[in-house]
Nucleic acid binder design. Structure first.
Lengths: 144, 144
DNA sequence: CTCGATGCAAAGGTTTTGCACCAGG
DNA sequence: CCTGGTGCAAAACCTTTGCATCGAG
């Protein structure tokens, strides 16, 4: 739950990946963000501030991809717009996003367990909604 | 359920929209596709064959938008990749798509009613999953 | 005749890729 | 060293938009 920059850096190294200055900055930002959801662009901005230099967006994407493969983070598609990223942890959750204003709510696994069970029993599908959000309308934007 | 080209054309007209040759071809393809899911590109290809000429992709998108506004079709985002479209009808359903092979299954409203109720009761969100699919892994691709 | 629809081209926004150079281990 | 990471630029991908022209009603 309390993942530090060093934890991430160590995990990179033990996955056979190299620890570079851009990566260290990205890890620091991710660790500091706890489990909030960041877009690649936001991550780039914060990591550049952290680093005191610039980082190419492609580097951000490649690093995120590496961390994803290493199982250290999840990237989530929130309907329209860019996808977001957050560190993985014991609190893995689903996402509920408002298609009007983009407001998101985290939904604990238990809440959707019933649906998952039905879809798996009935269709054999394992729904991965830690990766894709449920899209709808938040209280402030219900009904057209 | 048995929507014909003429039904669609008539609906266009009564929505104050004009019936042009490209639109007629697109309506014919949609009617012939029954409720199968087509991408804009696939629709363009089929409609051009129907028409015996070319139709610009922007025309396809604009026509789809018009039909959508008129309530005649739904467009659905299936995770990654292009979105698909199908005529609306009494059988409105949710979608379950495999993130590996793209296979999709239609899920009747009743099956997910429980989840919808929970999310609305608990978070006040009205989930619109006729518009956004549930993404997961189909039986042939379960577990990584 | 008038306004909506079309085609073409260009841009939009996010993500990916090719390539030469640089640097971590 | 040697392989993998980086920046830069360009492309890929789906979708939208501006604009002059065309054609349905």
């Amino acid at each position: 739950m309390h993942v530090s920059t060093d934890d991430l850096v160590a995990a990179l190294r033990s996955s056979g990946l190299r620890v570079t200055r851009p990566r260290r900055a990205l890890c620091a930002v991710l660790a500091a963000a706890h489990s909030s959801h960041l877009t690649a662009a936001e991550l780039k901005t914060r990591a550049e501030r952290e680093l005191g230099g610039t980082i190419d967006l492609s580097t951000v994407y490649r690093t995120l991809d590496a961390l994803d493969r290493a199982g250290l983070l999840h990237h989530v598609h929130l309907g329209h717009g860019p996808s977001v990223v957050h560190l993985s942890g014991a609190d893995d959750h689903h996402h509920l996003v408002c298609e009007v204003c983009g407001a998101t709510v985290d939904v604990p696994r238990e809440e959707v367990g019933e649906l998952m069970a039905v879809l798996e029993r009935r269709y054999g599908y394992q729904v991965d909604s830690t990766h894709f959000a449920f899209v709808g309308r938040c209280p402030r934007h219900v009904s057209s």
